[in-house]
């Protein structure tokens, strides 16, 4: 079993980040081409807590090195099941995900949290990411270790690309939002 954890901050309000998060893997993000589809399976608002719960299916296509391919059976498409919880009262987004493919070989459980940064709660947002990676295949410990190490390394690389890509989405999202607001202001002024 191996753990991966990282945290960073974004120079945008929690509201902006939580909204842009739904577009994280859209066309504005040029850094994560390995995410090829994001589908929403269900979505509900809890009447008591006010928490928005969303189930999504994330489809990725990322090639693996030759040695790992023999274990994966040459399949390069993988699917991730994600449940997210947006608590608007406490300003917290929690996203929990687990791998659906290769689950007989590997268990990856990831949790990401977006919350207002303590340094500037109204203008900055903290992002925390934790993952637990366990190789499940029977046999050599050495093979399991290699699979876990490779997965942690891939996690690190994808986390860097994910942040860079999300920065692009946040910038575009702010620009488009400002344009829309300006357009609305002009339309209202005309009336």
């Amino acid at each position: 079993m191996k753990f991966f954890a990282t945290s960073t901050e974004f120079d945008y309000s929690w509201e902006e980040v939580s909204a842009a998060n739904w577009q994280k893997y859209g066309p504005w993000n040029e850094k994560t081409p390995h995410v090829i589809a994001v589908d929403t399976l269900s979505r509900t608002v809890d009447p008591i807590s006010g928490i928005l719960r969303t189930e999504r299916l994330i489809t990725c296509k990322q090639s693996a090195p030759q040695w790992l391919n023999s274990f994966l059976g040459g399949q390069d498409t993988s699917m991730v099941y994600e449940t997210s919880y947006v608590d608007p009262r406490n300003k917290k987004v929690t996203m929990c995900s687990t791998n659906m493919t290769f689950s007989n070989l590997l268990s990856v459980r990831e949790t990401c949290v977006y919350s207002p940064a303590s340094s500037n709660p109204l203008g900055r947002t903290k992002f925390e990411q934790h993952a637990r990676i366990t190789a499940l295949c029977g046999g050599w410990q050495k093979v399991k270790n290699s699979i876990e190490e490779f997965t942690v390394e891939r996690f690190k690389q994808n986390a860097v690309k994910g942040k860079e890509g999300f920065e692009m989405v946040l910038e575009m999202s702010r620009r488009v939002f400002a344009q829309e607001r300006e357009l609305r202001r002009l339309q209202e002024a005309r009336i």
Partner: peptide, 25 residues
Amino acid sequence: MIAEAREDNRENDAEHMRGSCPSSI
């Protein structure tokens, strides 16, 4: 496959709906 993943996630759902994460992570 989704039905299986959903079942695995269910045990933690009550905890998540209070806005926290699974204790195992």
